[in-house]
Amino acid sequence: MAEVLVLVDHVDGACRKTTSELLTIARRLGEPSAVFVGAGVDAAKETLAAFGAEKVYRADAAALTDYLVVPQAELLAHLVATVSPAAVLLASSAEGKEIAARLAVKIGSGLITDAVDVQSDGAGGVMTTQTAFAGGYTVKATVTHGVPVVAVKPNSAAPEAVSGAAADVAVDFTPSALASGARISAVKPRERTGRPELTEAAIVVSGGRGTGGDFSKVEAFADSLGAAVGASRAAVDAGWYPHTSQVGQTGKQVSPQLYVACGISGAIQHRAGMQTSKTIVAINKDEEAPIFELVDFGVVGDLFAVLPQATGEVTARKG
């Protein structure tokens, strides 16, 4: 069976949830091989083996991690040339998509980004599902040329635990001179909030301009549900919440089981980032707010009254 390369999405060896999802998807197409770049492979091994990685290609050199994107794309191109995989899967994050795009040009392959599902097309290729126009359409596509390169969104598969050999394969690879073109000269890690990662969370509670800058009620409700906290661009532009928490066209695209919009009107650009959520709830003072067109459950009311009561109820019910 052909190998399927999965670029491991990790922070210092801590695998993001997408990695186990990608390995699960890879098994539908062939034999999963993880590609691990950077430090921390030992910490990651356990997860990689637990979700079926048969091999772990690892490369750890400053030449691969001190520069933006290109070295990783070159490494993958090198592996594609040596192992002729059935497909290459990456996380559809900003960085994952860029690595995918570079790789596709280098190896002359068709590229799919933002996939929400990947299946075998029954003929050795892939059949992907994407959403288009702010979630209004579903598009199924195949790759007709080269080794399919597919960037997959978080939460696109339920990770299935299956043990794999995770055989260690050190890759000796030196990137080209061109790869050092864009140098990462400083890294300022984000503050940890202790809440789940926005794009991976099963529940997201977001606040907008209607919070008036006071996110405490939004955060308390999120914490009662174990949810991530998001924000509209209006709230981010006002400086109330960090840009990394923005949901929407120019922020994060989330697709959780439950999305709760608090004091958010539901502009098309906001919808573009949350419309594919399974269940949608909104709290808004204005019964005409467009967000109510999307909801499974809506409360017309003041979030400063509704949220604390809901938080109390949730906490009580959880006992």
Binding site: V295, V299, A305, P308, A310, T311
Partner: peptide
């Protein structure tokens, strides 16, 4: 190098329940 095999409008979301907060919204 990619081919769109099918495009479908997502089914409209089922109409949800909307309640007015009368002290019991939460």
């Amino acid at each position: 190098w990619t081919k769109v095999e099918a495009v479908a409008a997502r089914p409209p979301r089922a109409v949800g329940t909307i309640v007015k907060d009368e002290g019991d919204g939460g």
